[in-house]
């Protein structure tokens, strides 16, 4: 059994106005990778390269043991893919789509498909054209889930969904992970979704992966230190500080490699440490992007 489901090595793709630069990562089997980035950062391009729909200019991509894009047909037999811009055939019914997918994938699970229909509140005789946006997303997801793929690749699956539908979708994704042989990669600009269910987190901005780690380490590394300075004290400076905010006497330091010694160092430099705040993934993401763009982090 291959324990790495997705592997990118130095993958690049050049467009006149955008470059995906040196993308490398590994996704272990049985885990969820949350792929976060602003719009236009390269999430979809990366995912399309993963699917073999776009061919990389350089670098190697292996998916479920298959080299992409050459062996995409074999790889895609075990992949369920849903992207935000994917549409089903408007004139055909949900049931027709299910029958079509079922004829292709030998592992199609009809009872599971039926239960998803019920939970997603979709009827097989409904035409795709008559569905709401949320229902269309859920129909596409149903087609991807019920083929029981070893790898689920979801490009912005929760975008435009109402809170109830979002929780339903996240719940189904987690249910997939009950099987240790299944792997999920999903992109989102909704950091709450990613924070809730991801094991691995990868940040992308302007075509580069700017940070990547397991989620717990991510949340552990980043802290905000709220300080109080006396008028004659100087702002403590040490390595690992990626951002300074707040006001002159009440500075707030942001670090991406927190260690308890930082608190004592601040005290040694004459500052009062008022609080050490944990940060949400969203705050971490924004701080990360800002500090990279400002050049504090390379």
């Amino acid at each position: 059994m291959n324990s790495i489901s997705v592997q990118f090595e130095g993958v690049g793709k050049h467009y006149p106005d955008f470059t995906l630069d040196n993308i490398s990562f590994e996704l272990p089997t049985g885990s969820i990778l949350g792929f976060i980035g602003p719009n236009g950062a390269g999430k979809s391009t990366t995912i399309r390269i993963l699917m073999g729909l776009i061919h990389q200019d350089q670098g190697a991509v292996r998916v479920l043991g298959h080299s992409m894009p050459e062996e995409q047909a074999a790889a895609k037999l075990d992949i369920g893919f849903v992207s935000e811009d994917m549409r089903l055939y408007g004139a055909a019914t949900v049931g027709w789509h299910m029958e079509f997918i079922r004829s292709i994938y030998p592992r199609w699970d009809q009872p599971y498909a039926a239960s998803l229909l019920h939970r997603f509140d979709i009827k097989p005789q409904q035409k795709i054209r008559g569905l709401s946006h949320g229902q269309r997303v859920k129909a596409a997801l149903l087609l991807a889930l019920a083929r029981r793929p070893r790898l689920l690749v979801l490009d912005e699956p929760t975008t435009g969904l109402d809170p109830v539908a979002r929780q339903e979708v996240l719940g189904e994704l987690m249910a997939v992970l009950a099987d240790e042989e299944r792997t999920i990669l999903f992109s989102s600009h909704n950091t709450l979704d990613v924070e809730q269910i991801s094991d691995q987190i990868m940040f992308i901005d302007r075509g580069r992966i700017i940070d990547s780690d397991d989620k717990e380490s991510f949340l552990d590394r980043w802290r905000r230190l709220r300080l109080v300075l006396s008028p004659d004290a100087v702002l403590p400076r040490f390595s690992g500080i990626v951002g300074v905010g707040g006001s002159g006497l009440l500075p707030v330091l942001t670090t991406n490699c927190f260690e308890p010694r930082m608190v004592s160092e601040c005290r040694n430099m004459g500052a009062i440490v008022q609080a050490v705040d944990t940060m949400t993934l969203e705050e971490i993401f924004v701080a990360n992007v800002q500090s990279r763009r400002e050049g504090n982090l390379v």
């Binding site: 929780q167 996240l170 249910a175 992970l177 009950a178 269910i197 717990e216």
Partner: peptide
């Protein structure tokens, strides 16, 4: 894994 799925929280 069971608890993660039940809570909809990541395995890690």
């Amino acid at each position: 894994r069971q608890l993660a799925v039940a809570l909809r929280v990541s395995v890690i």
